[in-house]
């Protein structure tokens, strides 16, 4: 019958209004207006005991004056900013710079004078990543043969000036390292989750650990 579809449509919108599971998963970033139920969950108590104990906070939270930090839950695979770079693993081969489609990684190396038996290792003088032009495709991470470069997990790198977006070698060295598990199956196997705040040591992130000094000398001797 003509007109029935209109009424059915009204029924569907009402259904979406009423059923809570139909609502969007809304995450109120960076802080959420907490309900007493949220607060009780955070404080590990039952809602009613919490309300009885903290009446003032409860009233405040009903009016919407209590904020809790909230973030969109991400998968550990998320390709984020803040590259995690391990100078202990990096050999300065510049594969990442070569594979970058935009050419935004700049590497300058020099000889260091150590490990002269093995043909000397490189000293990294410059390692700049221009995040302002980066598109986070992750080709550099894919290219790294020694698992020294990893995608990060954050997304809050907004700056007032473009020049501040360039991450230089000191920043990379001193940064807290929360590598994404993207293209790093070994991190997935370890159960590494950067979103919940796991940091990773340089020994952990590689496909295989870099041989220690003793190992090297032993192997050298055996050879």
């Amino acid at each position: 019958m003509y007109g029935l579809g209109l009424i059915k449509g009204l029924g569907i919108t009402m259904k979406n209004l009423v059923i809570p599971s139909r609502q969007f998963n809304v995450y109120q970033y960076p802080n959420k207006r907490a309900t007493p139920w949220d607060l009780a969950k955070i404080n590990n108590s039952k809602p009613f005991t919490y309300i009885a104990k903290n009446p003032l906070t409860t009233i405040k939270s009903f009016v919407g004056l209590v904020n809790v930090e909230e973030k969109l839950p991400q998968h550990p695979n998320f390709r984020g900013e803040e590259f995690a770079w391990y100078d202990n693993r990096c050999t300065g081969c510049a594969s990442c710079a070569k594979y970058c489609p935009l050419g935004i990684i700049k590497i300058v190396t020099g000889t260091s004078g150590v490990n002269s038996q093995e043909g000397q290792s490189y000293d990294l003088e410059v390692f700049d990543i221009d995040i302002g032009r980066c598109m986070f495709c992750g080709l550099c991470v894919e290219a790294c043969p020694y698992d020294a470069l990893h995608m990060g997990s954050g997304f809050e790198e907004a700056q007032y000036q473009r020049s501040n977006l360039v991450i230089d070698i000191n920043k990379l060295k001193s940064a807290e390292k929360k590598p994404s598990t993207w293209f790093r199956p070994q991190l997935v196997n370890q159960g590494h989750d950067p979103i919940s705040g796991d940091t990773a040591d340089w020994r952990k992130v590689g496909r295989h650990e870099k041989p220690s000094q003793e190992d090297q000398s032993e192997r050298w001797a055996k050879r």
């Binding site: 991400q74 998968h75 695979n77 998320f78 390709r79 598109m135 986070f136 495709c137 992750g138 080709l139 995608m151 994404s180 993207w182």
Partner: peptide
């Protein structure tokens, strides 16, 4: 899009 994020770490520009 959430599925894509699990799969490859990005939501729109997937590569």
């Amino acid at each position: 899009l959430d599925l894509f994020e699990m799969l490859c770490g990005a939501r729109i520009t997937l590569s």
